[in-house]
Amino acid sequence: MSTRKYLTAAVVIAVLGVAHVFAWETTEVSPGALVDGWRGMARFLAEALPPDLDWDAVVRPGLEACLTTLAIGLLGTTLSVPAALLFAVLGTRGRHQVVYQVSRSVMSFLRAVPDVVFALIFVTAVGLGPFAGVLALICHNVGVLGKLWSEAMDEVDPGPTDALRVSGAREPQVIANAVLPAVVPALIGLLLYRFDVNVRSSLVLGLVGAGGVGFLINQSIQLFEFDQMATYILMVLVLVVAVDLLSAGIRRRLT
């Protein structure tokens, strides 16, 4: 018994070791290149500091772009709610097997395709700009939020539901007075969490042309305006921290 355990452990360690060697080779990890490159990094930093705080050329457009980023994240989250809810409900355990499998598969597919890929697709469809970002977030978020909601619904304790059924309450009454009170706080918490993630995703989407402050960062790098980039990154930092604090604060009050 214990020899077999050791044998298993040895095999696992060996496999992990081989995997890491292989990964090291494939990703061309080269500490030497990093060391050699320090000069470039230093120059980059020197140019980035101090950040360019010119109001008309940098700060105001930056703030406007931050608002766009926030707006992309907001709409990408809100507009995905109806479809996410539908797939979540259809994907809870106890549904008809076919319905369950189909909705789980749709959600898995939407989750598996990264939002950046959706963004690239929509940029070719509707052109560069925030709208492509919104569409991309909706697609990916339906998959993720649907799955999270589905699991939250599966976890609802059926006890209070039973208690109300026994009292003769009709189905809508049972849902309104036993299921929803148990599940809504969890659903809202997950929604806020996704809003938080989506605002951060919308930054990345900006890098591939979907507008917002990510787009400005990309532009400033391509123009070698590293001090402008530094300003934008500071703004992003503030934005991300603010959204995170907001959503965490609300979630805390929900429980």
């Binding site: 208690a163 009292s167 309450a169 009709r170 809508p172 009454q173 309104a176 007075n177």
Partner: peptide
């Protein structure tokens, strides 16, 4: 909640 059965949905 024990007494919902007799109520219309609009009140429950």
């Amino acid at each position: 909640a024990g007494g919902l059965a007799g109520l219309p949905l609009s009140r429950s």
